[in-house]
Simulated scan of single mutants.
Amino acid sequence: MVVLGAGPAGLVLGNILVDRGIDCVVLERAERTHVQTRARAGFLAAGTVRILARHGLDEGLRRHGRTHGTCEFRTEDGRFRLDYSGLGQGDPHTVYPQQDLVTDLLARYLERGGRIRFGTEAVAVRAADSDRPEVDVREADGRSGLWRARYVAGCDGRHGAARRSLPAGTVRHHRDHGVTWLGLLAEAPPSLDAVGYATHEHGFAGHMARTSDITRYYLQCERGTPADAWSEEYIWDELELRMRAREYGPLRRGRVVHRSVVDLESDVLEPLRHGALFLVGDAAGLISPSAAKGANLAVLEASILAHALIDDLTAGDSEGVDTYSARCLPHIWRAQEFSHWMIGLLHGPSGADGESLFHNSLRRARLTSLRTSRSQQDWFAEHYVGV
């Protein structure tokens, strides 16, 4: 089995397969240090935690993860909180930085005897019409190579070789939401004991704690804004303005250690299997970060595929691999629907024309329903945590 990509999807898949005695190699184009330090999402759904626990992959998050179940909305009509862990299905999130999870998964994979090749970039996959697919690779020293396996799992994201190698006829559903965020990682203690969502005429702002001294922030910006366009002083001033620090208390400032620009886009590919090639995680469907679904979907899909492959490779039962797309796509589309709803809840059109005023009034009405309706709060909680 060849797995492309050493993110959560590839390492969860590799761990489950190796634990069941299936020979597996993970090919990762980046070096190990980069893989273990790249900052990504940090909110794990309850179902994700259960999957990791079931396969002995939860030791680190049990020791260092923090249960979280509250979000706060700050709007032009005031602020309100939802203790979502007491609503819906009654599930919280576990806050655990993705780079720490990846470090744990990699260590466990190697302990179990799994093989991984860092600095090895998959260039193309030939798998659609073959029982012995081939993966063309480029090594760190520039040399070309070839890997053969029974199956290939494309866990290498939206720009990876798996997507580039898809046959004609693959359907890609795509939506550009027309919203851009400046993603920030600050060496600053959290300023809220909740996830913070702020709507403002200047645009959206978000606050997400990562650790006791690291906080993730988001600021909506114009499309095309470079990551380094704004000074740190301007960033903090804008965060305080949008999060209404004057009314609700100042933010705890610190050095901004990482910046990235995120254009909010979504896509879903169908089908997720092409012969011996399977798409997993961001390769299967890109989801906006508005509702913290990406890593959770990746772990779910990896688990579904792992058990399907185990049945096929150890017992000759191909039902799971044959129905992989049909099992995963309903989860993906449900997560996409909630993410789309969140984008509409948190972002409104700028301008004072009639259409902009109409859509912003609808957005404020949705926030009012979320503040006042228990049934709406239960729906939110179930979809916010679940995948």
Rank of each mutant, 00 (worst) to 15 (best):
Y248G: 03
E72Q: 05
L239N: 02
L345R: 11
S339R: 00
H34Y: 11
A162S: 15
V171F: 02
R259M: 09
V25A: 02
R172S: 14
S369P: 00
G249M: 03
R38V: 14
E382N: 04
L106W: 12
H383E: 14
G294P: 08
E232W: 09
H200K: 02
L219I: 10
G56I: 13
V257Y: 01
T211Y: 06
L146M: 13
Q98M: 12
L182R: 13
A39K: 12
I287M: 04
I214E: 15
R223D: 09
R126P: 00
E265Q: 13
R29Q: 14
D104R: 07
V3W: 09
M1A: 11
E111H: 07
V385T: 15
P289A: 01
S144H: 08
G86K: 14
T180P: 04
R148D: 06
V35F: 01
V95F: 01
L367C: 05
H55N: 11
R364Q: 09
S303N: 13
W147P: 04
A326I: 07
V2K: 04
S191R: 03
A276G: 11
H55Y: 14
E238T: 12
A168Q: 12
D77L: 13
D131E: 13
G114E: 08
D311S: 11
D141E: 09
V268L: 10
A140Y: 00
V137T: 15
A6M: 02
S375K: 06
L251A: 03
E139H: 15
L286H: 13
A124S: 15
T323M: 01
Y248T: 07
I235L: 14
A298G: 05
V125P: 01
A45P: 00
A39Q: 12
G157Y: 03
V179K: 12
D156N: 06
A194N: 01
P167F: 07
V152C: 06
